[in-house]
């Protein structure tokens, strides 16, 4: 199982900008990895489909939007490495709901966003369907 994920400087900056601008709402997106280098080279910010009244504390990526994006990315030699989302004014830990919805072996990046900017940034991975969650170190490559 992977224990580190590297993200290119450009992709990293793009994530932070997206999440910061979305504050005080939760925002989310897809991390796309270059199949050759194994580094997250680009991201795709996604609409938060959780609904107006839920957006402050929930996020949802529309499955069909994900389907379109991943088939398009595959044609460019990219693949989905994982997902990122923010927790406005909350810790960068996984909530009960976050854990329940985790796909085993897929990388999840959680960022705490604050009124004044970005707080903690953490990475997680779940080993098995009902298994444990581990932290994953994030490298800016």
């Amino acid at each position: 199982m992977i224990d580190t994920v590297s993200i290119s400087k450009r992709a990293y900056a793009a994530i932070m900008l997206h999440l910061k601008n979305a504050y005080p709402y939760e925002a989310c997106g897809i991390l796309l990895e270059d199949k050759k280098s194994g580094t997250v080279e680009s991201i795709s910010s996604m609409d938060n489909s959780a609904g107006e009244d839920l957006k402050r504390s929930h996020y949802l990526i529309d499955p069909i939007a994900l389907y379109r994006l991943e088939t398009e990315a595959e044609s460019r030699g990219m693949t989905v490495a994982g997902f990122y989302h923010s927790h406005p004014d909350k810790e960068a830990i996984l909530s009960r709901e976050d854990k329940l919805n985790m796909i085993p072996g897929i990388f999840y990046m959680v960022v705490s966003t604050k009124r004044f900017g970005i707080g903690d940034i953490k990475g997680y991975i779940k080993d098995e369907p009902d298994g444990k969650v581990y932290s994953v170190a994030i490298w800016e490559a």
């Binding site: 996020y59 989302h85 909350k90 909530s95 009960r96 709901e97 919805n101």
Partner: peptide
């Protein structure tokens, strides 16, 4: 037929 995940979650309930 498409088999897809709904990537979703919520904020931590009680810090």
């Amino acid at each position: 037929v498409l088999l897809l995940p709904a990537i979703a979650g919520g904020a931590p309930e009680n810090d």
